[in-house]
Write a protein that binds this DNA or RNA. Structure first.
Lengths: 339, 339
DNA sequence: TTTAGCACTCATCGCATCGGAGTGCTAACA
DNA sequence: TGTTAGCACTCCGATGCGATGAGTGCTAAA
């Protein structure tokens, strides 16, 4: 592996590059970080680091910039973790839990806050309906043509679907069945929903029961698009790497493809804790030169969604990782407390 | 006013500038639009047009570009209206009315479609709750702490609010009052809602009635932010006038301020038909060099919202005006049919 | 092993040059 | 009187070039 001094040099290079976005030379490092050796020595080390693939050179007479491999090592082993003060944490918590916001609004706020903290693009995937626990299920016949399905899911998320149907059952029937279904479903998640419920309801209410249960299922299938909140997309334009219009357009367009983002974030959602995907490692082609820092969030002890930050590979990983972590925690505890 | 030939020249200049985004010279016009006169004559006319303020010159040896006044005249009197074919209209109608979409989804689709048609930023202000007719009002007690308020408004728009309250009335009471209120409100708009209803409900149900009515009113006060749909924001970056990063950032940030957009669009909503606001005439400072084309849309014969397009002053007004008109009509008829 | 010195490489900047597009003016023309 | 050809003039933008300077790799000495 890398000896101590190489690590110091690598860290210095990356720290400096993250800060300035300029290729960094041996002289700069010798001056700023006091390693007690001369620029020439550092040059040698940097040449080695380049050979082993941690650094690279835009052109022969420029300084070095980190490679993806360099960033990887930096994130995994080198960087100095950023810690938010207790005060800042509390502030985040307060902003998100805010004054009686609906969970959806809270997600939105969280997303905006994360964008603000990181000066990057933040993404939040809303809790997937499938993983949430039913709190209340209700069908109501509005008139001869339409039935309103209302689902209230555990942390206070409300879903509706207004369904058109030539109704051939009475308003009272609908209410009754609704009541029964509500009792069956309360406290269950969609995923855990075995065929038992179906058969029970059908046994009790016959064809109507079946029809209405199917309406509820319809109410659950939701359009993927609305599940991603993105904030701070313009922040990315302030990054020097996107001064070039072509790239800026490419990435902004990629960010509008919410399905892409969704798949990006949901495939990442397996492991615990904050995850970092760097550069080419995984991302969409338009996201050349970007990294993704993501983390899952919870209701109780169940993973229900993912949030993350997208920025240039040259992002302040320490700070972004910390911010993602803090916001994920705040969001989780907000959703969890919200009984 | 302007004589015939001046009009022709002005139109030629603006048409050409809209197409190419380059200052246009006398030679170009003489060549492209066959006016039967020499460049020199056109030069004279253009000099006159500049003097009267319809054209301007970026610098002395460049061609002319239209001034705001020029655009104004062009829009009001000069441009050749663009007409969509019946087929295109029907396509728009189909896309919007689509397969059983909720009205909110339809608005979203409409917005995306408008952005696509105009290659600009499109905005849609969602129907303001106040103007819509109640179709169904419902309160439901979920548990000891929360009451769910559900409003269904005329074209099938559903609003919810989950309200936390230490409840001191029974589930049945809530349902009863809810039922009564529903009867009172059905077919009424929020605006027409006199104090009569209050007093009646209170007379009948006393304090509980009052409390619940107030919950409904709470359910109506909605956060402004979510009322604007914007689409195609990145389109604007393809316009040559926004090749400059500073301006691009400025306008994108302005477009993220949804409240601003809202005020922009709602103040415009008075007159009938398509409205065009050009350049400096009205817009936000970051919108220097932009125009807004907007139009109201309807449910039945009631104005319920506004939609519009923002683009550079050098936009294809004919096409944009036509597109806004078509989409507004399609949207209106979709919302109206949706009984 | 470290470091000072040095030759070498390139990107960047400023500057001058030049071509071309377009104008306004004048004078001739219908 | 209105139109047009001709022409001098302006000024943007592209091109080329040399100077500058940051940074390197290599070599030789400590």
């Amino acid at each position: 592996m890398l000896d101590e001094r190489k690590r110091l040099v690598l860290r210095a290079v990356i720290d400096s590059y993250i800060e300035t976005a300029e290729p960094v030379g041996s002289r700069t490092i010798a001056r700023k970080h006091d390693l007690g050796v001369s620029p020439a020595t550092i040059r040698n080390e940097m040449a080695d680091l380049e050979e082993t693939g941690y650094l690279q050179q835009p052109h022969v007479s420029a300084g070095r910039i980190p490679s993806d491999k360099g960033y990887r090592f930096y994130v995994d082993a080198l960087m100095e973790p950023y810690v938010f003060t207790m005060l800042e944490r509390q502030k985040v918590q307060r902003e998100i839990s805010g004054t009686q916001l609906s969970p959806e609004r809270s997600l939105h706020e969280a997303s905006k806050l994360l964008a603000l903290l990181t000066q990057s693009v933040s993404l939040i995937v809303a809790p997937s309906t499938e993983q949430l626990v039913f709190k209340h299920v209700q069908l109501a016949a509005l008139d001869d043509k339409s039935i309103l399905v209302t689902l209230v899911l555990h942390p206070g998320i409300v879903k509706n679907r207004l369904i058109r149907t030539k109704r051939d059952y009475s308003s009272e029937q609908v209410t009754d069945v609704s009541e029964a279904i509500n009792h069956k479903l309360r406290g269950v998640t969609f995923r855990d929903l075995g065929p038992t419920m179906f058969t029970e309801v059908i046994r009790e209410f016959g064809e109507i029961g079946r029809a209405l249960v199917e309406l509820i299922l319809q109410g659950l299938t939701e359009d993927r698009e609305e599940q991603v909140y993105a904030s701070g997309t313009t922040n990315i334009l302030n990054q020097p790497e996107f001064r070039d219009m072509e790239r800026a357009i490419a990435i902004l367009e990629a960010l509008e493809q919410k399905e892409h983002l969704l798949s990006l974030l949901s495939t990442t959602s397996r492991p615990k804790g904050v995850q970092v995907v760097i550069g080419q490692e995984n991302l969409h082609s338009a996201m050349q030169g970007c990294s993704l820092v993501s983390c899952t969030y919870y209701v109780g002890s169940d993973v229900v969604g993912t949030l993350g930050v997208i920025g240039p590979t040259r992002m302040d990983y320490a700070k972004v990782v910390a911010a993602v972590d803090v916001v994920a925690h705040a969001l989780s505890s907000m959703l969890t407390e919200e009984t």
